[in-house]
Design a protein around this nucleic acid. Structure first.
Length: 302
RNA sequence: CGCGGGGUAGAGCAGUCUGGUAGCUCGUCGGGCCCAUAACCCGGAGGUCGAAAGUUCAAAUCUUUCCCCCGCAA
C-alpha cells in the first residue's frame, strides 16, 4: 500500500528483488493542474508496468473486503495516505508492516521528512514497524539512519529516504518472515507528532528565528514552497542561507539587493535569498530576480 | 467552461491603455583604468516582440482564433 513517488521507488525495488505482489492499494487518482486532468498516482504507474492489480478505494476504512480475496501473506505500507482499519490489518498471516519516514518514536504522523528539515535535524531515518490501529504506534523491527546535510531540502531528502527505505525493507523483510526480528515497543515518553502541513503554514512567519525560517524553507522546497509577501504578492523562497547574526534594520526589511545578494533582515540575523519565485512568474535565481525587480532595497517583506 | 498573472536579445523585465526609429538591468565579446577586483569607464554583437489571420498608409501595441508557461483553487 502506498501512493507517492517514494512508495513507487520502494515498490519497484521489491518487485525487482523477486517479491510477488498480489495487488497494490493506493489513493484514488486526483485531478492535477489547471486543466484538472486525472493523473495516475506514481505507484499505479509501477503496478501497471508489472501487471499488478491496482485498487484505489476512496475510503479504505469501509472498502477492504476485496483484500481477503487477494489472500496476501503480508502487507507492506509506505505513505499510503489513509488510516488503515483493524479489520484489514488482521487479514495477512504475517501481519502488516509500515515503513515510516522518521526514527520513531519521534515524528509520528503524515509529514516526518519535512519536519526533520523544519526543525533543523542533522539525522533522521526510516523505521520498519508493525502496523496497529493507532497511527505509527506499533512495535519497531528495524531502523536505518539518514544524515541530513545543510544543502538538503525536501526533494533531496526524500530521495535519500527512498534509498534507505529500499535497503531497509530488502534487508529486514526476510529476517522478519523468519521470525528473527523481535520488535521493540516505542518509548511513549519520547513520542512526538508531525501533522500534515496546512497551506497557511507555507507562509513564512517573521516572528521566527532565522534558523526556524530556514528550516521551513528547506522543508517545503521544492514543493510546495514557503513564501513571504512582497507588495501584496506571494514570493516563494526555495533556497536561502543565513549569512550573519547582524540586526541592523527592522525585521522584514530588504537590506541588500545587488549582485552580491538579496538579503532580508530577520530578528536574529540576516538571510540571503538565493532562489525565488514571484506569483505568476517562473522560479529563478536571485540575480535574475533582481534584474527584473529593481528598487527593492529597503522595502519590506511580510 | 473554476479564478488570476504571463510569453519582447542568452537571463530577468519595461513598453501595449493613447498604433509611428526596439528600451532597461544583467550576462557575453572587445578595449581602457588599476597592485588588483565580483568595482569603475568606453565600445560592439545579439530580436521573425509565442503562432496565424484581420483592420490600417503604418501593428509588440487594436480585433479574432490557437499554442505554451506560472500562481491560486480542487
Amino acid at each position: 500500500m502506498g501512493t507517492p513517488e517514494i512508495s513507487a521507488e520502494v515498490f519497484e525495488a521489491m518487485i525487482l528483488d523477486g517479491y510477488r505482489f498480489v495487488g497494490l492499494i493506493a489513493q484514488p487518482d486526483r485531478p492535477v493542474g489547471r486543466k484538472g486532468q486525472l493523473e495516475k498516482v506514481p505507484t499505479k504507474v509501477v503496478a501497471e508496468k508489472y501487471n499488478i492489480p491496482v485498487f484505489q478505494p476512496v475510503k479504505i476504512r469501509k472498502e477492504y473486503d476485496f483484500v481477503k480475496e487477494l489472500r496476501p501473506d503480508i502487507i507492506i505500507t509506505l505513505a499510503y495516505g489513509q488510516i488503515v482499519p483493524q479489520g484489514l490489518l488482521d487479514i495477512p498471516q504475517y501481519g502488516c508492516l509500515n515503513l515510516h519516514g522518521s526514527l520513531l518514536p519521534k515524528y509520528r504522523g503524515a509529514a516526518p521528512i519535512q519536519y526533520a528539515l523544519i526543525n533543523g535535524d542533522k539525522v533522521t531515518g526510516m523505521t520498519l514497524m508493525e502496523m496497529v490501529a493507532a497511527m505509527d504506534a506499533g512495535r519497531m523491527y528495524a531502523q536505518k539512519e539518514v544524515e541530513i546535510s545543510d544543502e538538503d531540502n525536501s526533494t533531496s531528502l526524500f530521495k535519500k529516504m527512498a534509498v534507505a527505505a529500499k535497503e531497509l525493507i530488502l534487508e529486514a523483510l526476510p529476517k522478519y518472515i523468519d521470525g528473527q526480528l523481535k520488535g521493540v515497543e516505542q518509548d511513549e515518553t519520547q513520542v512526538s507528532f508531525c501533522p500534515t502541513i496546512k497551506p497557511e503554514q507555507e507562509r513564512l512567519d517573521l516572528n521566527l528565528t532565522s534558523k526556524e525560517i530556514l528550516g521551513w524553507i528547506r522543508g517545503l522546497s521544492d514543493h510546495p514552497g514557503a513564501y513571504f509577501i512582497l507588495e501584496e504578492k506571494k514570493l516563494k523562497v526555495f533556497k536561502a542561507q543565513i549569512i550573519n547574526d547582524l540586526v541592523s534594520a527592522e525585521v522584514g526589511t530588504i537590506v541588500q539587493a545587488d549582485k552580491r545578494g538579496l538579503v532580508v533582515q530577520l530578528k536574529d540575523g540576516q538571510l540571503s535569498l538565493l532562489e525565488l519565485q514571484k506569483e505568476g512568474k517562473n522560479r529563478m535565481d536571485y540575480k535574475s530576480f533582481l534584474n527584473g525587480n529593481q528598487g527593492l532595497l529597503n522595502k519590506k517583506l511580510d
